[in-house]
Each structure stands twice: as structure tokens, then as C-alpha cells.
Amino acid sequence: MTTTRPNGSLYTQFENNIATIEFGHPASNSFPSELLDRLAKEFDKLSVNDAVSVIVLKSEGERAFCAGASFDELVAIDNLEDGKAFFSGFANVINAMRRCSKLIIGRVQGKIVGGGVGLAAACDYVLATEAASIKLSELTIGIGPFVIAPAVERKVGVSGLAELTLDATSWKNAYWAKEKGLYARVFENITELDKEVEILAEKLASYNPEALHEMKKALWLGTEHWEKLLIERAETSGKLVLSEFTKNALEKFK
């Protein structure tokens, strides 16, 4: 069942100390600003919920995991303030995931583009299917994945980030993403994926919550400056989206 709501949907289910966040949007599970804001707040809420030991992040349907930020909103940007606010959407989510005291498992069932790659990179452990190819196509429209780059680079390294961003029209398959460290494991189909996500989440939820929290802190050590950095990057993207090049490129997609 996939949502038809224009602003998308976000639900959290609780079971055995596991919180499962499921997001959805009719446009390939992309994110309008309102949905990004809801997701960031949800991570902040779960971070202080003592009944939750681990979080699973998933999206609706069997096709795309996430097509990034809302294209309609991107096309509508006409001033720097709106541009910065738009690109701050993923910055705020990534920072909320980084700050979150709970470990986050990403369940990736299909293709990921743009900001969605940042979302996967900000998870602590990602399980995916063979269909979960990734692409960062931002340079083709005159902007770049500046906001999500620190999260992506943290997982795949500078060389992996360069491959993804500079070869902006090519998909990298799930095994490339696994080899680079974005995915921990890759499965043939969604049934296998869901079985393994459940097993992993249940194992983690059975461990000492304090140990999990300390592990989370250790994994993200040295990223404290991201609070400021990602918002600065959002401003960079906000400026670029107003450029003549980008306006002309976006016109072709309308």
C-alpha cells in the first residue's frame, strides 16, 4: 500500500523496543520540506524515548527507496532564503540522525537518488536488495550534493564520493555500494531483506541500551561540527539553484 497524500506520509510502529519509521510519497518516496521536518522531529523524539532501543528506517512500496527532495519545490525556488531553507531539510534530518541516541538500521528495498543517498549514509547499518542502485545526479542541473556529501563521504570515502558525483548520469549498483561500505549486506529480494532486518533489529534490541548508546556516540565521533557545516552547505546549494545554468536546466524538466 503506497500513500497518495501530496505531502507524503510518516508512521512509526513500536514493537519489542524497536521503533520502525516508514515514510512514503507518491513521487517515488521523495521528500517535500514538510515531510523532512516531520522526519527530523521523529528522530529527536525517539532519541529520548526510553522504551526504544533501536530504530528501523524504511519506505513504502517495493520500488524506489527514496528519490531525494521534492522536485516541484526545487523548481519553485526564486530567492536565497527559500533556497537555503529547502536544502536545510536534509541537513536537519541528517543531523537529527547523527545526534539520535539510538542506532538506526536502514532497510533499502530499491533505487536511491540524491538526498535519499544521504539518508542511507546517515543510517548506522544498512541492509539492501540487489535493486538498490544509487545515483547522485545533482551536477547535471548545475548544483551539487553538498549537504549530504559529508555523510556519503564518511561511508564511501572521497574516491567513492567523486565517482558518484562526477559520473552524475550513471547508476552504481548495490554491490558497488556494499563494496564501498554504504551497505553492510545485499539480498536477492525484499522477503529476504525483511527477514534479516527483523533478526538484526531484535538482536540489537536485546543488548544493553547503555552500550548501544555509547557505541552510537563512538561511531559518530568527530562529526559535531556538522550542525554548522551542513547548514553552510545548504546555503551554497541555495545560491547555485538560483544560477542561470540551473534555471535553464530545470526548465527542460518542467
Rank of each mutant, 00 (worst) to 15 (best):
I143C: 05
A120V: 07
E196L: 06
D37I: 07
G116W: 01
Y11I: 15
K172F: 10
V117A: 02
T12P: 08
R63M: 10
V113A: 08
G116I: 05
V52D: 00
E179S: 12
G114K: 02
E163F: 09
I105N: 05
I141T: 03
V52S: 09
H225P: 02
I112D: 03
P150V: 03
I199H: 07
T20K: 13
L136I: 01
E15L: 11
K239R: 15
R185I: 01
E73C: 11
T140P: 04
K41R: 12
A96N: 09
T236L: 13
F245H: 11
T20M: 12
F86M: 08
Y11S: 14
L35H: 06
I141L: 09
K172Y: 10
P209H: 14
A132N: 09
A40N: 02
A177G: 08
A128M: 02
G106P: 00
A151G: 04
A122N: 02
L204T: 03
K84P: 09
W226V: 07
G24Q: 04
V156R: 02
E60T: 09
S59M: 05
R98N: 06
K41M: 04
S237G: 12
E42F: 09
F71W: 05
L221D: 15
G222R: 12
Y11G: 12
S30R: 11
C100D: 04
E15K: 11
K45R: 15
M215A: 15
A151S: 13
Y207K: 14
L219R: 13
E15Y: 11
P6Q: 14
F245N: 06
R63P: 00
I77D: 10
G238T: 07
